[in-house]
Design a protein around this nucleic acid. Structure first.
Lengths: 148, 148
DNA sequence: ACATATAGTTGTAATTTGCAAATAAAATAA
DNA sequence: TTATTTTATTTGCAAATTACAACTATATGT
């Protein structure tokens, strides 16, 4: 039996690199964390700071500062919630949405390239496998709580 | 069809977190990058600085300093290569080997926990899928060159 | 011997990180 | 209603991480 961790280590590192490489759009520089933040805000509808920070397993203070950067860059908008003015609601600006979409397209294009080396059946199998894996990781009690 | 990037994003993030959580052994604190470095040195036999830095897609200067830290912690040994004295050969000390092994066991234990939510057949399928995926990523021309 | 290339290190300055403490707005208790 | 506690977010600060440019030291080619 092959070393299972090895497989994960390699895959994870590769995808991390991929993400990193795909993060300079136009003349806007986006760090890896920032791209994760954009992705997460884009996916949810008007999440709070806490929610996103927790989803990413980030310290809230670090997150706060990253959001400040993204706001300064004009990619994220922070709107105070009327019902509870302690809470800020996050959303992407038009520019932010554009960046997020571009990154997404970039990564998906790469993934398609990778899948092009497989048969349609293999591709389906791999995708179903990862889906299953995610579900089982979510079930797990040991670790990785902060996600979903 | 589900969003493929989403699947990868979640999985990668989870595994990254897992790695991060598993990095405090005894009273030695190991950062995520450092654990990757230990892993890579352990896997290869007496690699050079360049080789490991490249495998991890790290800037060589950053890597150099990380190695200095690991040497200071007594986890890594740097041996000049007799044939070419510009080159340093990296290896783990006994302590370093112990730490690397402990992290490895920790992560494998978690992975086993995750797989315990699957049938044996599903497990086999998932592992084969990830293996295939890695192979196809390696074939790809677009991105992720620095690895293997 | 001289120029050039390679492996690794340091100077330095910017960025990122997270703990502790502060602010500010609910929610709850009295 | 006021006082107390809890919750969401922000700052102070000091340490760790990063990467570019410049440097040292060794090896290779002419």
């Amino acid at each position: 039996m092959e070393n299972i961790r090895e497989l994960f280590q390699v895959m994870t590192r590769r995808f991390g690199l991929l993400n990193k490489n795909c993060c300079s759009i136009d003349d806007v520089d986006i760090s890896l964390v920032q791209s994760h933040i954009l992705y997460e805000i884009d996916k949810r509808e008007h999440p709070s700071m806490q929610q996103v920070a927790e989803a990413l397993g980030m310290d809230i203070t670090t997150f706060s500062r990253q959001i400040q950067n993204l706001v300064k860059k004009g990619l994220v908008k922070k709107t105070p919630l009327p019902e509870d003015r302690r809470v800020y609601t996050l959303s992407l600006t038009t520019e932010g949405k554009f960046i997020a979409t571009t990154i997404d397209r970039e990564i998906n294009r790469y993934l398609e390239e990778v899948f092009s080396h497989m048969t349609e059946f293999e591709k389906e199998t791999v995708i179903r496998s990862i889906k299953l894996l995610n579900e089982c990781m979510a079930k797990s009690s040991v670790c990785c709580k902060p996600l979903f």
